[in-house]
């Protein structure tokens, strides 16, 4: 397959979408909530649970409030994009499929040094862990490659293979750009040429200020408590919907509240109001929500229960 070299950020995304579509993944859309990483998308977290096969790929806008640098750092952003692939069970040729995706975005295997360097992945807030690697291209980490072992405290059987590409960094490397804000967003030569900075510099400034100095911590704290309470409330409802008489377990709405709590925790952390000892307790509270959501998902059809 002849590869047309990407010339801009969106080319990288489009090439990845095409490639993984060709490999049989369902190309999903980003989850419509604030998350810290593509893993939080229910298409990964929840679908990694239970026996049903699954294959999906998607872009996920991700927010890490503490990484905000007012748009000045060459590669640190509080809002960035991850590309996420999840296949269950992990195929035997998963590494080859992954390397194929690097070729698809214009990385020539004959010229570059690709290495799989040990990296054990753990998400204390999701009660999840897996083993795998950071993938290095000429010394730069271009992806995370993980075989999920546990999610929400449950053993993954079968095991899902997960890939996460940090899109900005990867694209900057492929396109040879030194500062993220200088990276072409659409094709150079378009009628209206847009750089990454034209799209995101201002928002980086605005959110950096808000994240670090303005966000009202008492409101955030209240929202955290609310999300936690609502999550528990949803999961406490009976499985049978009294209106229809059908069994409707509300794993996804509950999980939305868990995602919310997790992001609120990140915001509070960026505001510097969480002490070292409190940190552990907040993480523990989010984890117990995640576990409860995982438990309830496993009772649903998608979780493999109605067979």
């Amino acid at each position: 397959m002849a590869i047309i070299k990407p010339t801009c950020f969106q080319d990288i995304i489009l090439h990845l979408q095409t490639y993984w579509a060709q490999q049989g993944c369902a190309i999903l859309q980003p989850y419509d909530m604030e998350v810290g990483a593509g893993t939080f998308h229910p298409a990964t977290t929840l679908r990694a649970l239970g026996p049903k096969p699954w294959a999906a790929a998607y872009v996920q806008p991700s927010r890490r409030p503490t990484d905000g640098r007012y748009g000045e750092n060459p590669n640190r952003l509080q809002h960035y994009y991850q590309y996420q692939v999840i296949i269950k069970p992990s195929p035997k040729n998963f590494q080859e499929l992954y390397l194929g995706s690097l070729s698809a975005i214009g990385i020539d295997m004959e010229l570059h040094d690709i290495r799989f360097v040990e990296d054990d992945w753990e998400s204390p807030t999701l009660g999840a862990w897996g083993l795998g690697w950071e993938v290095w291209c000429d010394g730069m980490e271009v992806s995370q490659f993980t075989y999920f072992q546990q999610v929400g405290g449950h053993d993954c059987k079968p095991v899902s293979g997960e890939l996460t590409y940090g899109l900005e960094r990867l694209a900057m490397y492929v396109l040879g750009v030194d500062h993220v804000m200088d990276m072409p967003f659409n094709s150079p030569g378009s009628i209206i040429e847009l750089k990454y900075g034209d799209v995101f510099r201002q928002t980086e400034q605005e959110y950096s200020r808000w994240n670090f100095d303005v966000a009202d911590t008492s409101i955030l704290l209240q929202h955290f408590e609310d999300a936690e309470a609502e999550c528990k409330h949803i999961l406490g409802e009976p499985e049978i919907d009294p209106k229809s008489g059908n069994k409707i377990i509300m794993a996804h709405p509950a999980y939305d509240q868990c995602i919310k709590a997790s992001h609120l925790f990140n915001l509070l952390d960026a505001r510097g109001v969480i002490s070292v000892t409190e940190r552990q307790s907040y993480i523990g509270r989010v984890r117990s929500l995640a576990k409860a959501c995982a438990d309830s998902f496993l009772k649903t059809e998608a979780g493999g229960s109605f067979e």
Binding site: P74, L111, H112, D113, I114, C137, D138, G139, M140, D178
Partner: peptide
């Protein structure tokens, strides 16, 4: 000094360049 896992037709030039770039960002 970096240790790559292969030889290339350009005698590692691309690899060195990439590594230098990563190092530049790190050291920045």
């Amino acid at each position: 000094i970096t240790v790559a896992n292969r030889t290339t037709v350009d005698n590692g030039e691309t690899i060195i360049e990439g590594n230098q770039k990563v190092l530049f960002a790190r050291l920045s």
